[in-house]
């Protein structure tokens, strides 16, 4: 069964003056895949991701995301993807409902569509009691789950998650990943970065960046074999330590 590639990266490079943050990386992500994008702080992960979501222009190389070229059509990329990061997901001073309505509007959904989606979301996550509460009053775990769903309001083909579970309690973390599984099962591609190595094992394939380059890319199982490790944590330690 041939799976089409929804992200194609070829020799993608980003330089800041003399410093090369991302050094000619190449990889593909298949449709419906859960792709883990790992690396140490400063390895170039965030820079690479910014190029893929269309908010940073590459210095050289090429990449296609959801069928659009990162150089020529970054605006179309932004419309076709969902994005959620730890730093910003929802507006603290708006209620849950208001956030959903707001982001729905930004993504170009009509009023009717927003209403439908909102009802679905509230039901699915069981938000009935807190739908009219300010987001700031919610525990972190709830915020993350709602933010994730909001990023999917417009049914994007790919969703980019930048360390979505940082600091969240273990139970909520797992509930979050179950949501990720469900999303992937529905055909949405999930591109996720994380510092939790056990979460790396939930991914179909994982890439590890070291000093701007991709030093490993394979399924977690194969990587563990390749590096003679018991788990992804060990793989990471062996690779990053050099």
């Amino acid at each position: 069964m041939k799976q089409e590639s929804i992200i194609q990266v070829e020799n993608l490079t980003k330089k800041f003056n003399d410093f090369t943050a991302v050094n000619a990386i190449s990889f593909n992500v298949k449709r419906g895949e859960i792709f883990g994008f790992l690396g140490a702080n400063g390895a170039g992960k965030t820079t690479a991701m910014k190029m893929l979501i269309g908010i940073s222009t590459p210095t050289s190389g090429n990449a296609q995301v959801a069928g659009y070229n990162v150089f020529k059509n970054p605006e179309n990329i932004k419309k076709s993807i969902g994005y959620m990061s730890q730093k910003f997901a929802l507006y603290d001073d708006l209620t849950v409902k208001e956030n959903i309505t707001f982001f729905g509007g930004i993504y170009g959904l009509s009023r009717k569509q927003i209403e439908v989606k909102r009802r679905l979301l509230v039901e699915e996550l069981g938000l009935q009691d807190i739908a009219n509460e300010l987001v700031s009053s919610l525990p972190l775990g709830w915020k993350q789950k709602i933010a994730f769903s909001v990023a999917l309001l417009h049914d994007p083909k790919i969703i980019f998650l930048d360390e979505p579970t940082g600091g969240v309690d273990p139970i909520t973390r797992r509930q979050f990943w179950e949501m990720i599984y469900k999303t992937a099962n529905n055909g949405t591609t999930v591109f996720v970065t994380t510092h939790y190595m056990d979460e790396a094992e939930y991914c179909d394939r994982v890439s590890i960046m070291v000093d701007g380059k991709i030093e490993a890319l394979d399924t977690p199982k194969n990587l563990q074999k390749q590096f003679n490790s018991e788990n992804m944590n060990d793989v990471f330690l062996k690779l990053a330590r050099g």
């Binding site: 140490a40 360390e163 190595m197 330690l237 990053a240």
Partner: peptide
Amino acid sequence: TTGVDPVSRK
């Protein structure tokens, strides 16, 4: 060690 990669954490 929050937000720091596993190697630095170790």
